[in-house]
């Protein structure tokens, strides 16, 4: 408890719907803890409440119930102090498009009361790749470079905690890889990272993750443990007509879930094994379907979360 850098304790938040009295629940009593020096992922689809959770932790929003704390500072009471130790990068690109790369960095350094060179070691590796474009307006950068610049600006005051809201959305796969490599290096410098993402491949790069689905957290653990803890059998199925096959698979009474992923249809079995499934498919017009057991991936775990 005491070594947690970020604590979310039963946070709830709902929004008013237009003019009516009905409210949409964004967060429904979520709790999790982030320990010092880890990369913690908040994994969930769009609309799950990731952004709301981050805004509450960064003191930008007030929770309806529950409390959030960063380094023991309450996000409601001690918001001014939290704002000194947190580096925050919102989901949208939120730097000044008409300022150059260098001007943006200088500006954010100044408002946090530091000089760029004070913590240059922290951002050097990232900023070096931007340096050739330092006089370019931020609005004219590519998506990946914008994110790098935003990261530099969030890091320039050497925050203890870095909070990133979907940092890689809209960024190409190579830049995404590089971005997570950078986070790995920051971790070695003692910075705790809380990041949200809808991508499972990124989830597996976190030390620990929480799945966030419809405002609730059904599972929190290291990605490895989540996969290990998955006890059901996964079958990968392939046939000529994949989409029709998926429909048939969903009819299979023993299938817990069936969904398409990449080249395969993933089926999670409640009971029985591959032989029973083969027979079912043969009697439904797919005698030639290729079936094989596979190790569960994070996607499989996510798709089979307890409803």
């Amino acid at each position: 408890m005491s070594d947690a850098i970020i604590t979310a304790d039963g946070i709830s938040k709902s929004y008013k719907n237009g003019r009516g009295n009905s409210r949409t629940t964004a967060l429904d009593g979520i709790s999790f803890e982030v320990s010092e020096g880890e990369i913690f992922g908040l994994i969930g689809p769009d609309g799950a409440g990731k952004t709301t959770a981050m805004r509450i932790i960064t003191s930008l929003m007030l929770p309806d119930a529950g409390r959030a704390a960063v380094c023991g500072l309450d996000s409601v009471k001690d918001y001014a102090q939290i704002r000194n130790i947190v580096g925050y990068m919102p989901g949208r690109f939120s730097l000044y498009q008409d300022l150059s790369v260098e001007e943006n960095l200088q500006f954010f350094a100044t408002i946090f009361g530091v000089k760029v060179k004070d913590n240059y070691g922290l951002i050097k590796e990232i900023y070096d790749t931007l340096a050739p474009f330092k006089d370019r307006r931020a609005g004219k950068l590519s998506g990946g470079m914008k994110q790098k610049l935003a990261l530099c600006c969030a890091l320039v005051h050497k925050p203890r905690v870095l909070i990133l809201d979907e940092p890689t959305t809209g960024v190409d796969p190579v830049s995404r890889q590089e971005f997570w490599d950078s986070l790995g290096r920051l971790k070695t410098q003692g910075i705790t990272v809380l990041a949200s993402t809808p991508y499972m491949d990124e989830a597996s790069r976190c030390d620990r993750i929480s799945f966030l689905v419809k405002g609730k957290i059904p599972a929190t653990d290291a990605p490895r443990n989540i996969v290990k803890g998955f006890s059901k059998k996964i079958v990968h199925a392939r046939a000529n007509r994949m989409f029709e096959l998926l429909k048939v698979l969903r009819e299979y009474p023993e299938a817990e879930s069936a969904y398409a992923f990449g080249d395969n249809n993933h089926v999670t079995l409640k009971n029985g094994g591959i032989e029973e499934l083969k027979q079912f498919l043969a009697s439904n017009g797919y005698p030639d379907a290729e079936l094989e057991y596979a190790e569960a991936s994070l996607e499989d775990c996510f798709m089979n979360l307890p409803k």
């Binding site: 704002r83 949208r92 730097l95």
Partner: peptide, 13 residues
């Protein structure tokens, strides 16, 4: 609208 207010608010200014 551009979201920069979000960043500015999370600063000590």
């Amino acid at each position: 609208e551009f979201g920069s207010m979000e960043v500015l608010l999370v600063s000590p200014v």
